[in-house]
């Protein structure tokens, strides 16, 4: 087992427009990307659970060219609206850091 924080090269979040949030995890080597892909932990269900959204609202993309996985989810509050906590969406990645991947 290894946590994402121990094996990823990049783990980040950002707005994808004002109404969606996109979360990326990038691995340094194709081999690690493939091992994580084979573990089948990263997917719409995981992001739905981590962020409290419906799995059908998660746009999940495997991106072998960048050794990366991307998940895009609806924001809880649109960027900058009253009650938003993160206008740029740049600090919403932390729950993913703690996810265990059986390697």
């Amino acid at each position: 087992m290894a946590k994402i924080r121990e094996i990823a090269e990049v783990c980040k979040s950002k707005n994808a427009g004002p109404f969606e949030l996109t979360i990326d995890v990038v691995f340094k080597e194709a081999a690690m990307f493939e091992r994580v892909r084979a573990a089948k932990i990263l997917g719409p269900q995981l992001f739905a659970r981590l962020y409290g959204v419906n799995a059908e609202d998660v746009l999940f993309t495997e991106y072998p060219a960048g050794c990366a996985f991307k998940a895009t989810i609806p924001r809880a509050v649109s960027s900058g609206d009253v009650g938003d906590t993160d206008v740029y969406g740049a600090q919403q990645h932390a729950p993913l850091l703690e996810v265990d991947i059986p390697l």
């Binding site: 707005n15 994808a16 990326d24 990038v26 746009l59 960048g66 050794c67 990366a68 895009t72």
Partner: peptide
């Protein structure tokens, strides 16, 4: 190549 591939992830719903 990897910095450019990673850039495709930036601020978009999909990298593709």
């Amino acid at each position: 190549p990897s910095s450019c591939a990673n850039h495709s992830l930036h601020e978009n719903a999909s990298p593709n």
